[in-house]
Design a protein around this nucleic acid. Structure first.
Lengths: 363, 363
DNA sequence: TTGAAAGCGCTAACAA
DNA sequence: TTGTTAGCGCTTTCAA
């Protein structure tokens, strides 16, 4: 060991009390800022603490008070444009109320989500913001709620779970986006979703049976909204224009390239999130397909680069930061014990018209 | 309160012990996976725990073991392309070792950094990864280290602080980037830094006095590298091409617009991070300046959109994820008690040549 | 306003 | 292998 400084034992409340010549109870009151302490006594205690380099032990405090002032945040990937912005909203709001954030990524894998939720309950977080992975059993979330730990769901809803949710109306947002494409004259509209085949096939079923299950996921709800608009306009959905293949940018690139190679290519593409948009956009330029003259592109989520690429991306923007703020606020109010029925906050989306959507080629 | 389920009191080790008909110590051993317990006994305890819905209390455990298995991460902004990628590397590595991540943003503000570090020490994190804010007093970090909590600095070094650091060689990277621009024939090279005026003025001083202090920050080190290359090539640095104005994209946009309005505009721009690149790029297109024909652009950090914009951005890429992994690994090894001298890990950068750098206009 | 004492839920000696 | 017992550092009665 070449560490020069041997860490001196950290001072505790009794140490400070002794130094200040008061009881541990009095020292603890002065240090913790509760109960009543004469000003002169407090000053003496604080001075002693300062001198000894006292650091409060949150663990001990939390054991007794039953509160860790910590929010657990469980999302699939903090690098995702939507989540990273939401997380900032959550963290800023939490910080303002003296709460901290414990983070976990799940990569959309259910077992990682379960492990993360379990770990957070063991650490006694006061509440949880989670964006649940698609599909699968949700017993782990029900258990947490049953144990009295408030949970706010981000972006997605889970049928049968008594948890508050905050997000946008995904189905409506996709419908509006599709309507905008239709209004521009498009009929051969493709969707690049990132979701799984099975999920999307349910949407194609003419009777729409199972649509509730479908809309429990973001991709599913958006697919349903797409279908709503197409059906209302009397336009057939072409099954070959429904793409699915993973949430990474290169997945969207591959899928889009496939779409462009079709004998009858789409005249417009609706991409379901920012990474899908970026992938689709790149596939377009690589294929030398002019946007919007040959193929229009409409994406979800406004990002730092959406107005920098050329043409600027027309997007259905979600207020991601505000969604984080709202989720955090709602969670905080539940932690403070506010009761009332389960709340579902839907924040408004905005269609930001830039240059990537035009009319279909006349040919 | 309309919450239907009254949270039943959470089961503790004695509860489980009673249910299983063993002592608390035995139950604790079975539950905590330490000591020795006969298999049949363990099964009985685990079954009882399952039945009672037992959840371990990490706080109590940590109080005794002295370890929270938590890493504190303090960065200026998790939305920043470099930090978000690094954070993912840190989190993935930590998770693999059974550690979790407590997060804090500082927005480059020293008081927020101090508060975050204090909060984390009170929560008894086992170690800290911090990207220290530019300038100011660093006593808070020295205190943490003196208290025996390992600290790994990300991206930046702090003179006089006995902390490990992980990042790139910023000075060298900027020198190489500048040399590339020089090799392409540029002489009127501008830098868009995001840093402060004062920091950059130090760099312009012919005697380079204070360069050590300068290179303690990322911007400063990169500025020094820029100067190194310019000086070695015998090219004068034009003070009017040194821009500073804040780390947000719009700051870079404003600064770049100013640069382009100069009577003698630069033929190349070196942007000091991804947001600066994006802002500079946007300013270029908005001003109708062709890149690279009229002005070349070279940025730092490879991002998801760097190869999607047109022209593709030539960048000096840092291995952000790997830097996070390395920082995490180093921290974890210190937590496990590995001694040895302070380590400074410098990971290699890569110049990714795309299309945004060309030769200066012949006029 | 202050102090004495009990105890949060768990682990770690030590003994059996 | 199992049990008894003593705390970790703090807050919180309760009494003075």
């Amino acid at each position: 060991m070449s560490r020069s400084q041997e860490p001196r034992a950290i001072a505790t409340v009794p140490d400070v009390a002794r130094e200040a010549g008061v009881s541990t109870a009095t020292a603890a009151r002065a240090l913790g800022g509760y109960g009543s302490v004469r000003k002169s006594t407090r000053d003496r205690v604080l001075a002693a603490a300062e001198q000894l380099g006292y650091r409060a032990n949150s663990l001990a405090r939390s054991m007794i008070t039953g509160s860790t002032r910590t929010l657990g945040v469980v999302v699939s990937d903090i690098e995702n444009p939507f989540f990273r912005r939401s997380l900032r909203g959550i963290a800023d709001t939490a910080r303002g109320e003296g709460f901290e954030v414990l983070l976990a990524n799940t990569d959309e894998e259910l077992d990682k989500e379960e492990a993360a939720v379990r770990m957070m309950t063991e650490r006694r977080v006061d509440g949880l913001v989670v964006c649940p992975a698609d599909g699968g059993d949700r017993a782990h979330l029900a258990d947490v709620i049953a144990a009295g730990i408030p949970v706010v769901l981000l972006d997605r809803r889970v049928a049968g779970l008594k948890a508050d949710t905050v997000g946008i109306d995904n189905r409506k947002a996709a419908r509006l986006a599709t309507e905008y494409l239709l209004a521009n004259g498009h009929r051969d509209i493709a969707i690049v979703t990132g979701g799984t085949r099975g999920m999307l096939e349910r949407m194609l079923r003419p009777d729409m049976r199972g649509v509730e299950r479908l809309t429990a996921t973001t991709v599913g709800a958006r697919a349903a909204g797409f279908r709503d608009a197409m059906t209302a306009a009397g336009v057939d959905i072409r099954p070959d224009l429904i793409s699915s293949g993973g949430y990474r940018r290169q997945d969207a690139e591959r899928e889009t390239a496939g779409l462009l190679a079709l004998p009858r290519r789409p005249t417009a593409i609706l991409a379901f999130d920012a990474m899908q948009s970026l992938g689709a956009f790149h596939a377009l330029s690589r294929a030398g397909v002019r946007c919007p003259e040959e193929v229009s592109l409409l994406g979800f989520d406004d990002t730092e680069w959406a107005d920098v690429v050329s043409p600027g991306l027309t997007v259905m923007a979600q207020p991601a930061y505000e969604i984080g703020v709202a989720a955090s606020r709602l969670l905080l109010s539940r932690i403070e014990g506010s009761g009332g029925a389960v709340a579902h906050r839907r924040l408004p989306t905005t269609l930001i018209r830039r240059a990537s959507v035009g009319t279909p080629p006349s040919g």
